[in-house]
Amino acid sequence: MKIPANFAFSQNNLQDYVDCPRRFELRYLEKLAWPAIRSEPILAVERHMQLGERFHRMIQQNQSGLPADLIGATASEPELIEWWQAYLSSAPDPLPERRLVEHTLAAPFGSYRLVAKYDLLAITPGERALIVDWKTSLRKPKRQILSSRIQTRLYPFLLTEAGKSLNNGIAFKPEQIELIYWFTADPRNPEHFPYSSNQYEEDRSYLQNLIADAVNASDTNFPLTGDERMCRYCNFRSLCDRGEGAGEMETDSLAEESSESSGYDLDFEQISEIAF
């Protein structure tokens, strides 16, 4: 199936393409609803996601100027209280003055567009820009896994490409940008990814090749992933004749590596917009 001209590549759809081109096709091009369970235990996954969503909203409320005690009073679940306390005591600090919460940036890239929604952008115009991403996964992934994620490449790259209006009309230099992953599972040890011109060029080339690859696949076909373990955490497994039941997230080491482990993690990009 052809990629439509107005298609926007995001960390989610690109990561899906990397994990399984066929999943990318089914989910984003065919927009196929396939309501099988991605990972078990489903209600625990759902609860964790809901708490993650509320935690992101609490931070958004705080960054928008609401007092922390007022916000904290709306949390009654032990995990949420713990996360909130961790945020108050261990969130990256000091952050640059200008804050943009849940902010979307997009930029033309070849014949298509790149898009990303940032949990938090903290900016000192002319000096630096911090990207902070709040992670509520059960475990903190290894740095090596994080560095290989599309998000780690796309977010700073796109800020360089599309952040001009946030920096007095001048594009940020890659060296002014840093990406920070902050974990509820390990709040005192966030992972910092400073950006650089070399990395910027490498990411540009990587993203160009990846998108070109997807466009080529759309002219021929989108193959199934070669790593069938991925299918345990994919709702399309029955459509592809790759199994029946969903994998167990808590007991499987693959969960940490699979993008489908987002069942236990949450990016604001994944929360459906209340657009209307």
Partner: peptide, 28 residues
Amino acid sequence: PDLPAGGLPTIVTLGGLAQRTLQLFWPA
């Protein structure tokens, strides 16, 4: 695809704006 790089406008109805704002300012 040719829209200049940067942010995106908010496209919303009154109901959508009300719900977004409520979610944000509920504690207040």
